[in-house]
Write a protein that binds this DNA or RNA. Structure first.
Lengths: 246, 246
DNA sequence: TTCTGTATTATGGTATACCAATATAATTTA
DNA sequence: TAAATTATATTGGTATACCATAATACAGAA
């Protein structure tokens, strides 16, 4: 009688999160859901009181958020939720353009049938959430939608970076008045991306994504530029085969 | 007589770095220069002794390095210098391909004459360092070379991300035996990039960069795959106009 | 009422204590 | 001698103390 080989399934997992990990999640969530807004001071003792932990856990979580760009500290001013500059916003959109179009292209090329089915499903849920107008539902649906995309693109590091970039412009996207006016166009652009993905056309998906982010960045950066009384260069999208054939 | 408008030039700067910032720099430098190798445990009390600071500063620096991906902690195992997995290595090369080619393209399109002069100078210094064979000089020259590129590309966030990605594969690049055998090819490829940049040809610079990173990744990933007894997918480079004209 | 000086409070930086869990070393047993 | 058991040391998690500096509040003078 052959013994079944030992594998990892017997291994005891021990995944009790530390207090600082829980604090990190809570703070990130509070920033993403606008309980904490850009510019808000993050006074350590206040956070200790609210979260019921010591300054050690709070400080270590703040260090992590600083590395992610969601929190900033200036010398002698204490930490605060990062306020995005116009320059950084345009840099982030430029980067997203290149990264997101790559992820969309990779997903189109590589997604398994199951991942494509999950993608279709996430898209349906997102459409329903957009129809409902429920902000919490939309935020969750968008997050799931991108999560499926990142998973199927087969590049975990790109997914991580894109999540960080999106987190940093989360407030800007939510508050650009013209973003709301773009709602119909935005929906059309996303539909174009989804159609190209479903048609397994990486070039078309890539281009649709580039167009979408170009349009989104134009609006968001214009709003921010106006608010800050500055001009801003448009982003440079990635080189694209369709471009050169024109 | 018109008063000269007040600006920031009168403002007193106060940039004394904190202990944790100094610790962060020291640890990052130790990792980059192979005083600390992937897999090395980072025992807090040991680091306190060596650096002459308390555990608070060490722990906060470690949190930052964790967020950057240079350090990893598993539950109940304590922190250690991150060991890169084959999957993450390929994801990082795939990402670098897209980001570095974008940065090279942007630099080619946007660099001022002064930035181009600085780039030329950095390239001369790098060539001299490569001829000398002095590892420290090479590491510094490479860092300066990329620094100039990132500066001239006009996307600060891309520069930051690329620095992080390069840091994470620093050891892999330095230790792939076949990397050393690639020396001549690598030099030719970089020369091609530089020539295209100097000729102000963004498409050619983009393509040369893509080819360079494809070749570098093939070698580094093959070495790591062999070491880990695994296979790995090649990276998918960005879509490229020259590709589609072929 | 405004400005200046002083007092008080707030807060981030840094150090250290304590504990529980884990790893390692030492001892005992078969 | 090897295995099992027990003892000890190590180490990360977390809390709290203390201090110096900066910010804010308050009082007095002009």
């Amino acid at each position: 009688m052959q013994r079944t080989p030992l594998d990892d399934s017997l291994k005891v997992t021990r995944n009790q999160p530390t207090l600082r990990e829980m604090v990190l999640d809570k703070l990130r969530q509070a920033i993403m859901s606008f309980q904490l807004l850009p510019g808000d001071r993050l006074v350590e003792r206040d956070l200790c009181d609210k979260l019921g932990v010591s300054r050690t856990s709070v400080r270590e979580a703040l260090r992590h958020l600083e590395a992610e760009g969601l929190v900033e500290s200036e010398s002698s001013r204490g930490p605060r939720v990062a306020v995005i500059t116009l320059e950084d916003a345009r840099d982030i959109y430029e980067l997203r353009c290149v990264l997101e179009s790559m992820v969309v292209q990779l997903f189109t090329q590589k997604a398994t049938r199951q991942q494509m089915a999950e993608f279709d499903h996430a898209w349906e849920i997102l459409k329903a959430a957009l129809r409902s107008g429920d902000t919490v539902a939309i935020v969750n649906a968008v997050s799931d939608f991108y999560g499926v995309l990142y998973e199927g693109a087969g590049n975990r590091i790109a997914g991580q970076f894109l999540s960080q970039l999106q987190a940093r412009v989360n407030y800007l996207r939510a508050t650009s008045v013209s973003q709301k006016e773009r709602y119909v166009d935005s929906f059309k652009e996303m539909t174009k991306i989804v159609d190209a993905i479903q048609a397994r056309n990486p070039e078309a998906a890539h281009e649709a994504c580039v167009e979408h982010i170009k349009a989104a960045s134009k609006v968001a950066l214009a709003a921010l530029a106006e608010k800050q009384g500055k001009a801003v260069d448009p982003i440079t999208p990635p080189l694209n085969p369709a471009q050169s054939l024109r």
